[in-house]
Amino acid sequence: MAREIPYIQAIMEAITEEMQRDPNVIFYGQEQAVSDEDPMVVAFGRKRVRPTPISETAEIGMAVGAAMVGLRPVVELLMTDFILVALDQVVNEAARVYFKTAGRVKVPIVLKAGYGFAAGWSVQHANCWYNLFMGVPGLKVVVPSTAADAKGLMKAAIRDDNPVLYLHHYMLTLVPGPVPDGDVVVPIGVADVKRPGRDVTIIATGWMVQRSLEAADLLAREGIDVEVVDPRSLAPLDVDTLVASVEKTRRVVLVDQAPRHASAAALIAAEIAERAFGALAAPPRLVTALDTSVPYSKPLEDAVIPSVERIVQAVREVVQA
């Protein structure tokens, strides 16, 4: 059985269910749980659910400390851009503890933050920073694109013994999708084929999965059968599934909402080039944001972020190459 619920509701359901399952899970963040009627406060009490000051370094650093002695904190950081204030705690503290203690101290924390808010949030609140965190050994980075993945990956993130950066896409917040009933965990590090196809593979994450599926529908009318694959997790990255798809279709378009330079798309393209060069009938094609800041004005924002039209055009070119 499955229910149709919005992406954000799926995320909150996962957190609530995990808090019911495990008393070690706590939840805190800025502007959270300020009312005594807040359902999380009602369900779990003020010890486990707290509003914090605007102190990202302490919020993340305290999660690291609490996790060292066995709690599983979920930190609501609101926007990925805000994490940059506390970059040390994410990349050089949380992700280093397990290694530097040779496995004697674990840091099971979830850093939850939205990203990619392409709705006029402009230069400092609409970025897609997952690429900054992909190259941090010890840190996991997940980017769910559907309500079901959002719920299942949050459950996996909370149960994971490592620091997990859980990035949910702001443009998907209210998008409904079928979510299976019961305790369904989506494993971290496993890609998912969102649409099977024969002619060309699109690899996309987050909101770009939705745009790629729209592009695939348009291309189907032209007789181009597109496979859309969502890595779902950028670290670790399920290169095997991505390569298997490309070896089947022999053509690949990589769609990424972040700027091209040092993007996830560029990294995946390199993996494919190394692993599946012989299978490729055409060079990989990247459809990314422009290498510029996210602007405020609607037509400018539209020009920066990959559109369905740009994806369609790139696929046509790859298929004709």
Partner: peptide, 30 residues
């Protein structure tokens, strides 16, 4: 670091271990 002797470790970055200690105290309180 030596968690068996209650020493949970250090940060090599000045000041950044202070929130970790504070978080351990949060866990005790929770």
């Amino acid at each position: 670091a030596d968690p068996e002797h209650q020493f949970l470790g250090t940060s090599g970055i000045v000041g950044q271990g202070i929130p970790h200690a504070t978080g351990v105290a949060l866990a005790i309180q929770v």
